[in-house]
Structure formats: structure tokens, C-alpha cells
Design a protein around this nucleic acid. Structure first.
Lengths: 197, 197
DNA sequence: TTTTATTTACTTACCGTTCGGTAGGTTGAC
DNA sequence: GTCAACCTACCGAACGGTAAGTAAATAAAA
């Protein structure tokens, strides 16, 4: 519902500061006072623009999920090989990580922790939709014959997903990284070629 | 410092409950009252056995790191091929995940979040030592020629590490998983063979 | 061997601080 | 005169942590 570039300045300030703090310290590590002080917005004003603490968290989730889904959809529509699509998705995801590190870290925390939080049913569904988009992509690789005949597609999904997330994390923690294009190219090629070649 | 099977019953109860709760909700999501109530130990008794909340967290860290280091060291000492060593490490790590899911989840949270916590200098060093053990292992793969000549060893470390952690997480969240032996074998073979074969 | 002192494992009841959240008023633009 | 956008000041509950005492086991002294 929330667009990073719309609404009032005040709401946006809150939104960005909250993303940063949640990303850094997790949901329970952040207080409303902190958000208030770091954004220069008084505490009651936060409750004026957002329902409550969970409400901010949910809007962050929604915004990020919408963004992320777009990336995969766009890549699926392009008329290039499966391998190139994987590269583009990885590259776009890493680029997004550079541009919006706070949002990216926020989502890393999510994917990762088993924390019982404001991740309600509606979001489970949305996340499931994402996963299915990704599965559909892998199916393309199988159908097109770009996967070798001995490749277990379930394992392939795991491995590609794991590597992608790993590099997102690495991008967030190191600043002396190669460009998203280079990394994506090297990694995907290595995965297809195998470690023994 | 703390051995899971020693010390008093009371201290151990606290220890195990804390591991479970920290694993589930993160450091800031857990209160001393919760630990007290879930373990059936009064709050002041927790402060009797541990310095404070951070103290419990640190002892959990130390215990887990010591355990984890042993696995890699043992594998390094065996006289088998590099590829087999990788399989054994992965398999042992997954088995450990099955036996101590709480500890495993606890460490997943650690590796994963960028949370600014009681991860003091001493632990940074210990974690660095771990990383170096792992790097030494990869170097074996390069020296023995088991890695192909076109493989960038830095990428190889990333990919193997990422896949390992991914499967630990998967083991924690699903209960209909193949055995650690099967998974490790399939995954390592696929990584060496590559996706296109 | 009995008595006394000390230590260990535990209790109840409380401390000041911070938490998420709100009541109720103010201000300026339309 | 209304309403959106803001404020100060406060609420009860939960937080991490502790003071002060007790009951039982253990060690030292008689």
C-alpha cells in the first residue's frame, strides 16, 4: 500500500527510519521511541500515520514483497535463455541490495529467522506466490533442456536460491564487492559448469 | 566453559530453555521472566548461575562454537578425498541440526542477522578461526586438484558455505527431509558435476 | 561426637527504567 | 468553523536486575 516516493514527508521519514532500525536490530530490538527520535517525528505522530508497531512492520513487508515480485515477473517476460534469466534476476536483486540496503537487510532477517511475528496469513500467501514464480522459472530450465538430464530440479532450486541469498548477505556486509553483473555472471556459470571442471 | 552434560540440574535447565527461546525469538524477543517461567527456575537463581542476560547468550555462543569447531577438525584429520570430507562435514552438521535443533537455530540467527549484540571481540576471533579452518579445507581441494582449473576458489567457498547453511535451515523448518547422508551426497555431487550435465 | 560457623541453593518482594500506546490540547490552512 | 497535522504529558505493564533473608548441607572447632 505504501509507495516509497509518495505520501507525506513525515510518513516517509518514519517509514525509512523504521526500515533501517528493524533491519539492524530486528523487530523486538527497536522501540517506538527510537523510531521517533531517529526520524525527528514525535511518537504520537507515528501512531497517527501507522496503526501501531506491527502496522509499520507489515507495511514494510508489503512494500518490499511487491517490489521483489516485479523483478522476477519482468525477467520471466524477456526473450532470453533460462541461464540469462537467472543471471538477470540475480543481478537485479544485487543491484536492489546496493540501492536499498535497509530494505534488503530487513528481508534477509525475515527469510532467515523463525521468529513468530506479524507475518500473518496474508503474507504467507504472498510469499508462497513468490516461491511459485521462482519454481516456474526453474521449470523453464527443465523444459528447455538447459539443465542436464541428471539434475534433480528440487536440488537445483535449493542451490540457486541459497547462493542468491548468500550473495545478497555478502553485499550487505562487504563494500569491496565486484559489480552485480560480474558476480552474477561468474556464479551462475560456475554453478552450471560444476566445481570439477 | 559450559558443558551441556555437567554442572547442576538447575543451571542446565536454564541453559536449555534459554537456547530454545533465543533460537525462536532472538535476543531482544526473550525476557528473563520468560526464561524463568519456562524453566521453572526463579529469576534471581538465573542471576545466581549467570552474570546477566548477555552472560547466558555468551555461554551459549561459546558452547556452540566449540562444538562446531570440533566437527571440522575431525573431518580434516581423516584420510579421505576432499570431496568426501565436504560430504562428511555437511552430513555431520545436518545430523547435529537434528539432535540439537535449538542450538542450531540459535546459530542460524547469529550467522544471519547483523544485530549489534553481545558478540564481543573474543567471539569475533573464534568465528574467524572457524572461517580459517574452512578456508584451509578448500585449499586442500585446490592443492589436490579436485577443483577444476577454471574454478575460482573464493566463489567455491561462498557457494559451498551458502548451500550448507541453506540445508541447515531447511532441516529446521521441514520434517519430511531425506537423511543427512543422502542429502549431503546428492548436493555435493551435483555441485561438482554442475547443473548442465 | 556434638556444636558452631560457613557456604550453597534457594525464596519473596521490590527497585528504577523503558516499553507500547493514548488522552487531550494547540495550531494553521482552507 | 472545521479538520488535518502536530504537541506535551502521561498511563499501566513489562523490562533487567537486586536486596535481604532462609533452609539445608558441609566444614571446622569443641
Amino acid at each position: 500500500m505504501h509507495d516509497i516516493n509518495s505520501d507525506t514527508d513525515t510518513k516517509n521519514k518514519i517509514f525509512l527510519v523504521a526500515a533501517h532500525l528493524f533491519a539492524e536490530k530486528g523487530y523486538n530490538g527497536v522501540s517506538m521511541r527510537e523510531i521517533s527520535e531517529h526520524s525527528g517525528v514525535s511518537k504520537p505522530m507515528i501512531y497517527y500515520y501507522f496503526e501501531n508497531k506491527e502496522g509499520i512492520y507489515k507495511q514494510l513487508l508489503e512494500t518490499g514483497l511487491n517490489h521483489g515480485g516485479e523483478i522476477i515477473k519482468q525477467a520471466l517476460d524477456e526473450e532470453i535463455s533460462f541461464r540469462e534469466k537467472l543471471k538477470i534476476i540475480m543481478q537485479k536483486r544485487l543491484t536492489l541490495t546496493q540501492i536499498y540496503p535497509d530494505f534488503s537487510r530487513f528481508f534477509l532477517l525475515l527469510n532467515t529467522s523463525s521468529t513468530k511475528f506479524p507475518v500473518t496469513k496474508e503474507f504467507e500467501d504472498k510469499i508462497e506466490t513468490h516461491r511459485n514464480l521462482f519454481k516456474g522459472l526453474i521449470q523453464e530450465g527443465i523444459d528447455s533442456g538447459e539443465f542436464g538430464p541428471r539434475v534433480n530440479p528440487v536440488l537445483a532450486i535449493d542451490i540457486i536460491g541459497a547462493v542468491l541469498i548468500h550473495y545478497v548477505r555478502k553485499y550487505l556486509n562487504n563494500d569491496d564487492m565486484k559489480s552485480p553483473e560480474e558476480i552474477s555472471d561468474e556464479v551462475i556459470e560456475l554453478l552450471f559448469r560444476g566445481l570439477n571442471e
